[in-house]
């Protein structure tokens, strides 16, 4: 299930602490031919790594159908097993990391990925918050494996599913379940052009209001996670009159107690409130604490 140890693992030596400046300065260097190229005139090398995940975020790269040829022109897709068996050796300029760390092998492998990557960007709720599989973190993983598997002794797994940033330095986190492919494109083109990517951490409500949507919580009494959720999806669900599920996880300012009180007024019971926070981003720093707090409150 976890492929790819071969590719970059043996290679080493590229400093993980190299800053954005290296490509940035080239981006500003004037001549368009040198823009975004690594030394020697080559295209930047892109690698896509998978850990515990559903592959949906990687697929969003392939879903960039209209931009794919241009993207393949701008970067060398050096390691992307979801798309091609052909592998180019590291080091890599941009590493996209999907999935969470769930095994001791993962712990080792993500360190090797870090070593061969100039920029390491974790993509998706698994890589940034542990994903839906981090629900195990709130229970006893041994109990789960005993219930689920006929031979639980074959299962070798860590007790917790954890985000990439708990193990190595991450240069940028791209949130979402799955990520917004246009945000991914924005990040890649920003790196190539030496500008800061427009990735915002304010609430979904900002995007929702800019879109001219009518607030479904105020006008429809529908519980919505938008006020505590990071923007990035262009308020997808509220635009279709559905409450936000918080695919993009906590926004920069999270007041779960106040929103939970409102959910209660709208008729949700405490168990349901805990469950809306126990979704794809359950183990994010903000949601995990308050989910506990709310649960304690129900007992």
């Amino acid at each position: 299930m976890e492929h790819g140890d071969k590719a970059g693992g043996s290679s080493s030596s590229n400093s993980s602490s190299s800053s954005m400046n290296s490509i940035k300065s080239r981006g500003r260097s004037g001549s368009s031919s040198s823009r975004g190229r690594v030394e020697g005139g080559k295209r930047p090398k892109l690698a896509v790594w998978k850990f515990a995940s559903c592959d949906g975020c990687q697929l969003s790269l392939l879903d960039l159908e209209d931009e794919l040829l241009e993207l393949a022109d701008a970067v060398e897709v050096a390691y992307f097993l979801e798309a091609s068996r052909a592998v180019v050796k590291g080091p890599y300029d941009i590493s996209l990391v999907e999935g969470s760390i769930t095994t001791s092998d993962d712990v080792e492998r993500i360190r090797r990925v870090r070593k061969v990557s100039r920029y390491l960007i974790s993509i998706g709720a698994c890589a940034t918050a542990g994903g839906i599989q981090a629900l195990r973190n709130f229970g006893d993983v041994k109990e789960f494996t005993n219930i689920v598997y006929a031979r639980p002794e074959y299962i070798s797994t860590l007790e917790r599913s954890t985000p990439i940033s708990e193990h190595v330095k991450v240069d940028l986190e791209l949130h979402g379940c799955p990520i917004n492919r246009y945000q991914l494109l924005e990040v890649i083109s920003s790196i190539l052009n030496g500008k800061r990517p427009n990735i915002n951490s304010y609430s979904v409500c900002m995007e929702c209001k800019r879109a001219g949507n009518v607030c479904i919580m105020v006008a429809g009494g529908i519980p919505c996670m938008g006020p505590v959720t990071r923007a990035g999806c262009n308020a997808l669900c509220p635009s279709y009159r559905r409450g936000c599920y918080s695919c993009f996880g906590p926004s920069e300012s999270v007041n779960i107690r106040s929103l939970s009180n409102r959910f209660r007024e709208l008729g949700m019971d405490d168990g349901s409130i805990v469950r809306v926070f126990r979704m794809f981003n359950a183990y994010s720093q903000q949601f995990r604490e308050v989910a506990r707090e709310e649960e304690v409150g129900t007992q």
Binding site: S203, M206, S258
Partner: peptide, 14 residues
């Protein structure tokens, strides 16, 4: 106020 406010920016948008 901060105990209730979500800092979601809806007031400024509307």
């Amino acid at each position: 106020v901060a105990e209730r406010c979500l800092a979601c920016a809806n007031c400024t948008m509307v």
